[in-house]
Amino acid sequence: MAVVTISRHFGSGGEFVAQLVAEKMGYLLVNKAIIAKNMRSFGTYDPEMAYFDEKTVKLENGEKNLEMEQRRRNYLEGLHEFFYDMAIRENLVILGRGGQILFRDFPPSLHVKIMAPLQNRLARVSRLYHLDEAASARLISEQDRDREAYLRQVFGCNWLDPELYNLVINTGLTGLEESAAIIVKAAQLKEGAGEVPIQELEERLLEQQENTAAIHDASGTSPHFAHPSEAEFARMLDFYRIKWLYEPKTFPLEWDSEGAVTEAFSPDFYLPDQDLYLELTTQKQKLVWKKNKKIRRLKEIYPEVQIKIIYGRDYRGLLKKYGIEEEGE
């Protein structure tokens, strides 16, 4: 069967182009969701696949974690077998993951690189994820570094080597739909097919893309407090006439290789007059490391955001100061 592989710079619109190509040609788009779903039935699923997917091995104290390295190798072997197995039965559009190398000599195949000037990518990432320019630049740099390192580590190839591709498309000069149309035409020529399949899905896809972006901005202003301590804290702020909003914003913290948010954080309170976010935690100190990690990440990506954590002991100190008995004590 035919294979189109699409390698993409983060923020170049490559995922969207791949989706359009798959829709126009009636091919199966092999992205993270499809891999997770199908590898489960293929018997090589690893629940920590997000850790390995298009990611390189991280050294711990200068050394590889051998157990993780072995799991990663198993995962990669399984993934590549899965690709070959699928290619026998289906026409595929494979997004990233070294498809251009795995299917280099596969007869009906087309390998495409999607790139765009940094300014265009910054604008797209900033618009899709509601990030400022500096945060977008950091994210782009991280994701590109991961993909470049993945190809070097797994296949010993240079990601930017033009000899790996039939086509290199700059979406800064060519629109996403135009890019998809070029790829479809090129794939058909390679396949020796004549007619262009149905191309009426653009509007629905665009709408779908916008809806996905809107989820990242989801916020709830209704104060249905998750914990009694938050309700008590809100009463305290009210008492001192401090304006507050409850969980008004969710900050995306991690993205997978296709740009989908895999980790996010919603601080409990926002004080608009102070332009300050507050996170209240009543967990024991030894259990708050996950939250601390998220907040460190938030500060890295959004250095302009002011956030403070009120730990359990701080909160209990407040109750003591105000002579309030803690609930459940």
Binding site: R235, M236, D238, F239, Y240, R241, L319, Y322, G323, I324
Partner: peptide, 13 residues
């Protein structure tokens, strides 16, 4: 008035 003490508890400062 201070938060959490006496009748002011439910009110505002």
């Amino acid at each position: 008035s201070s938060y959490g003490r006496g009748s002011a508890y439910e009110g505002i400062v």
